[in-house]
């Protein structure tokens, strides 16, 4: 029983970040029909900025929590600028062009790999502990930081869900992702909606990166691991589907946790890939995919 609770909690903790990451991927795909491999770099730059600013601010005798919150603001701002540049000078010209946008994103991956290494160096960056202490839930220990991360992820996801179903922008985003031509006929300004979708996705990546920074290994290469798992999550859940991304994120996290617990981590990784193929055999559009 104890083991089961431990595994479920671990899955939820890992899944929280995968969900935020996959939501961004699925949103961009839904609106623009592009596969953005540089999404991991948006995530990475946010984590790197946090890792840079927090020790700096802490050096000015700022307590950990305010320093971290300021760091998050800076990280989101920097990430949004990078996202803006990516969109305006790149992806804007490749809407609904999967092949073209994909190569562009590969070029960006290589370019940003080099730039990050040059700017941030390869060393692992320390982020001081923001919320010290451990909480025990049903007999299973969880660090306060991880718990805060999960809570934040749930709030962000809930906000996004609310915005997608209730606000005008959200409805437009959904309309475009279901049928962009019909949406345009209804007077939805496609260009502006696509831009908004891309920026929201960038902000999600930024938040995910900023949240994970205090509990993980922050280096310029951090995005790659999440990118692969994020893509698997959205394939499993169905590209373009918000509930699908949530489901997929949890799915990947659960296999990683259970597989890693009973076998070893490498076998768990292979199991994830195999299960994706199985899912697609049954549902070629993912579990909740449409269109």
């Amino acid at each position: 029983m104890h083991t089961a609770i431990q595994l479920i909690l671990t899955s939820l903790q890992i899944g929280a970040v995968y969900i935020l990451f996959s939501l961004g991927l699925t949103l961009i795909f839904g609106v623009m029909r592009i596969v953005n491999f540089a999404h991991g770099h948006l995530f990475a730059i946010s984590a790197l900025v946090v890792a840079y600013t927090v020790p700096l601010l802490a050096g000015w005798n700022l307590p950990a929590l305010p320093a971290y919150l300021l760091g998050v603001v800076a990280a989101v701002a920097v990430t949004l600028v990078l996202g803006f540049l990516m969109y305006v000078f790149g992806f804007r010209y490749f809407q609904r062009d999967m092949v073209g946008s994909f190569i562009l994103s590969i070029g960006l991956v290589l370019l940003l790999d080099g730039v990050f290494l040059k700017v941030f160096g390869g060393a692992v960056r320390p982020v001081p502990e923001i919320l010290p202490g451990t909480v025990t839930i049903l007999g299973a220990p969880v660090t306060a930081q991880r718990l805060a991360l999960c809570v934040a992820a749930v709030i962000i996801t809930a906000l996004l869900y609310w915005a997608m179903t209730r606000t005008k922008l959200g409805k437009a985003l959904r309309a475009v992702s279901i049928d962009h031509e019909a949406a345009m006929l209804q007077g939805v300004p496609y260009g502006r909606i696509a831009f908004a979708g891309f920026m929201i996705a960038s902000a999600l990546a930024a938040l995910a990166g900023a949240l994970i920074a205090p509990v993980t290994i922050v280096s310029p290469a951090i995005g790659a691991d999440y990118l692969i798992k994020g893509f698997i999550a959205v394939i499993v859940g169905g590209l373009g589907s918000v509930p699908g991304a949530i489901l997929g994120g949890l799915f990947v996290a659960a296999i990683e946790t259970v597989g890693g617990f009973y076998f070893d981590a490498t076998s768990a990784t292979i199991a994830i890939f195999l299960l994706v193929i199985v899912v697609l055999l049954v549902r070629p559009k993912g579990l909740l995919g449409h269109g």
């Binding site: 190569i103 590969i106 070029g107 370019l111 940003l112 790999d113 080099g114 040059k118």
Partner: peptide, 8 residues
């Protein structure tokens, strides 16, 4: 990487 990425 910077060079090659920029070229692409």
């Amino acid at each position: 990487h910077i060079f090659y990425g920029a070229a692409i």
